[in-house]
């Protein structure tokens, strides 16, 4: 597949990130194209979350450049809130707002950030809640919902901003096994619709089915990248082989 003719959505060059003395990202460079689905895998502590969180500046990097949709994050003049409007993020622990109903969860940022009226926001929220399959729960508080439902609310909340890029940080690792499928289904639909997605996950079935590219990280660095076929049939790096053996 040729990616030369496609626009770069996320441009990452020579990025380092330290937590004290710990080097969480080591000279990471990566381009992610418009509409591409990238799955990031790697052992615990390898820097997957840090990489994802650097893309919407929940972590600030110590060296290198990240450009998202033309916004240079390392430029102090960049309004980070403007960039974040274009990047949806879904967390392992959902982080739904427990003091707001499902509908209010999804309306809140639309009204505050996108400056939509309540009616406009609600119309968009309803459409998304239908899409993620929880339209009947709109007036419930999220604490009354199952984990899978909460995560779908979180996805709808991010989508309501009409982002150009979606980041998923282990969206199903905190879920009971029977709920993983419902969340992955929503993500697969999103992928089919052409959303640009970066997904950290241990769900290899999802990676095989959805990913255009798989990236393996270890010790804060990208060790190997390639198509799912490449990864699951003949990975070249020894560390990749060891890792895949452990989880498959």
């Amino acid at each position: 597949m040729s990616t030369n003719d496609r626009r770069v959505m996320v441009h990452i060059r020579n990025v380092d990130k330290y937590f004290g003395h710990l080097r969480a990202l080591t000279d990471v460079s990566l381009d992610i194209y418009d509409g591409e689905k990238v799955v990031v895998i790697g052992p615990s502590g390898s820097g997957k979350s840090t990489l994802l969180r650097s893309i919407n500046q929940l972590e600030t990097i110590d060296a290198g450049t990240i450009i998202v949709d033309g916004f240079n994050l390392t430029d102090p003049a960049t309004d980070i809130n403007k960039v974040r409007e274009e990047i949806g993020m879904v967390f392992q622990l959902f982080n739904v707002f427990p003091h707001k109903t499902v509908l209010e969860n999804i309306n809140l940022a639309q009204m505050l950030v996108r400056k939509r009226s309540r009616e406009e926001a609600t119309a968009i929220s309803m459409e998304l809640l239908n899409k993620v399959g929880i339209a009947e729960k709109i007036h419930q508080y999220p604490t009354k919902l199952s984990g899978g439902q909460q995560q779908r609310v979180a996805i709808a909340r991010a989508l309501a901003m009409k982002p150009k890029l979606m980041l998923f940080d282990e969206p199903t690792s905190a879920l009971d096994p029977e709920m993983i499928g419902e969340v992955l289904d929503v993500m697969k639909t999103l992928a089919r619709e052409g959303m640009t997605m970066i997904v950290v996950t241990h769900e290899m079935g999802f990676a095989r089915e959805v990913a255009d590219r798989v990236i393996f990280m270890d010790y804060g660095a990208i060790v190997e990248e390639g198509t799912p076929e490449h990864f699951f049939t003949n990975p070249t790096q020894e560390r990749t082989q060891t890792f895949l053996k452990q989880i498959l």
């Binding site: 929940l58 974040r84 982080n95 739904v96 909340r157 901003m161």
Partner: peptide
């Protein structure tokens, strides 16, 4: 309040004060 709440709000583009 768990740190994830602020992060979720900020990731939606809200300012710190919002």
């Amino acid at each position: 309040i768990p740190k994830g709440q602020m992060e979720a709000a900020r990731s939606l583009g809200m300012s710190h004060s919002q």
